[in-house]
């Protein structure tokens, strides 16, 4: 299968610190890939570079045949890349529906007016938040804000969805619902790259994992195999456990 998302030689420096160092991997169309690694290993920086939030210092990112690296975030969004943020970014003074309409109005669909409102409600229903549609986003609980953020990302009609610890902080019941929700997205053909720490979710969802440590890729293999890789175990648990 030809790669859909192709990352090659990606590097990001902050002053003297190299947060991501010569990282290359690819994701096939319709695949769910986990991007793992200990805290500070550069995962979020990678997502930030794919979504255009940070320009890469070096290297290339391409989606299908389009080069993403070098484009601004709004142009990357219009190429069909949507994301959620590690720390939820709601638009607190807008209503929940308006939050979702933002992605519809300026994303690939360019919906506005009544059509946008109906579509937004559909997306809210999809994440189980339809009953909060009229509320101010700032009044939602943290978990509901996360749901809303996913609805907003889905409303953008993405080809590639970037999830940054979207499942973190959910209780066991919510986690099951969340996993089902993401699995459902896969069947609708969306390609997903997810940064995640919840092992249960990774095992349930990701066919393959890319694992990073200190900015470098240390494993890239089917999930079970990647997680048992000695280098990975060392990275997570330290030298003596390897």
């Amino acid at each position: 299968m030809s790669p859909f998302l192709q990352v090659s030689g990606l590097t990001r420096r902050f002053g003297g610190l190299v947060a991501v160092n010569d990282l290359s991997f690819s994701v096939a169309k319709g695949e769910i890939v986990g991007l793992l690694g200990p805290n500070g290993s550069g995962k979020t920086t990678v997502l930030n570079m794919i979504s255009g939030h940070l320009p890469p210092s070096d290297g290339q990112i391409a989606l299908a045949d389009t080069r993403l690296s070098g484009l601004g975030p709004h142009k990357i969004a219009r190429q069909g890349v949507a994301r959620t943020f590690q720390l939820v970014r709601a638009l607190p003074s807008l209503s929940v529906t308006e939050n979702v309409i933002v992605a519809l109005a300026f994303g690939r669909k360019r919906l506005w007016g009544e059509a946008a409102r109906l579509e937004a409600l559909k997306r809210l229903e999809q994440v189980g938040l339809a009953h909060r549609a009229g509320q101010q986003a700032g009044d939602l609980t943290y978990i509901d804000q996360k749901r809303m953020e996913l609805a907003r990302a889905l409303a953008a009609d993405p080809q590639l969805l970037l999830l940054d610890e979207w499942l973190a902080g959910l209780n066991p019941t919510e986690l099951q619902t969340g996993i089902e929700l993401i699995r459902g997205l896969k069947s609708s053909g969306i390609t997903i790259l997810m940064v995640e720490h919840v092992m249960e979710a990774i095992r349930a969802l990701c066919g393959r994992c890319v694992i990073m440590n200190a900015g470098i890729k240390i494993a890239d293999a089917p999930t079970a195999e990647a997680l048992s890789d000695p280098a990975v175990v060392t990275a997570y648990l330290g030298e003596q456990h390897a």
Binding site: R89, L94, F106
Partner: peptide, 20 residues
């Protein structure tokens, strides 16, 4: 709406496809 979003959070604005 674009202006409201920009005023509130420029990161969300640009990631939603708004050319700030």
């Amino acid at each position: 709406l674009a202006l409201k979003v920009i005023g509130e959070d420029e990161v969300v604005a640009s990631h939603s496809g708004i050319d700030i």
